[in-house]
């Protein structure tokens, strides 16, 4: 039963990643592209966790945690760059 749910989950998140990629490619403003990149990172975390469930291991937990931390930090840094023209003042 978990196998079917995992298949659905992999398919749904892959379609979601493709939609994010569409927004990343065609987004009219810079902020649209940045929002799409942030969403891609969040979806990748879900994909890594699903792969961890599939393999029945907790090895991939650290990778997901690193993705979460660096995704947020890079989004905020880029927003600060757009706001102030500099990241650290």
């Amino acid at each position: 039963m978990i196998g079917y749910a995992l298949a659905f989950g992999f398919a749904a998140i892959s379609v979601a990643l493709l939609l994010n990629l569409w927004r990343l490619a065609t987004g009219p403003t810079v902020m649209d592209r940045l929002l799409a990149a942030d969403t891609i990172v969040t979806n990748l975390i879900a994909l890594i966790i699903l792969y961890g469930i599939h393999q029945a291991t907790s090895t991939y937990f650290e990778a997901a945690l690193l993705f979460a931390m660096f995704g947020v930090i890079s989004t905020i840094a880029y927003c600060r760059f757009m706001l102030r023209g500099d990241v650290l003042e």
Partner: peptide, 24 residues
């Protein structure tokens, strides 16, 4: 337990898909 895990996986990935559809 397997039923709960499957339902949570389906609901979670469905929500993720809805979020990306909204993004587009």
């Amino acid at each position: 337990g397997e039923l709960v895990v499957s339902l949570l996986i389906v609901a979670g990935s469905g929500f993720t898909l809805v979020g990306s559809i909204g993004l587009v």
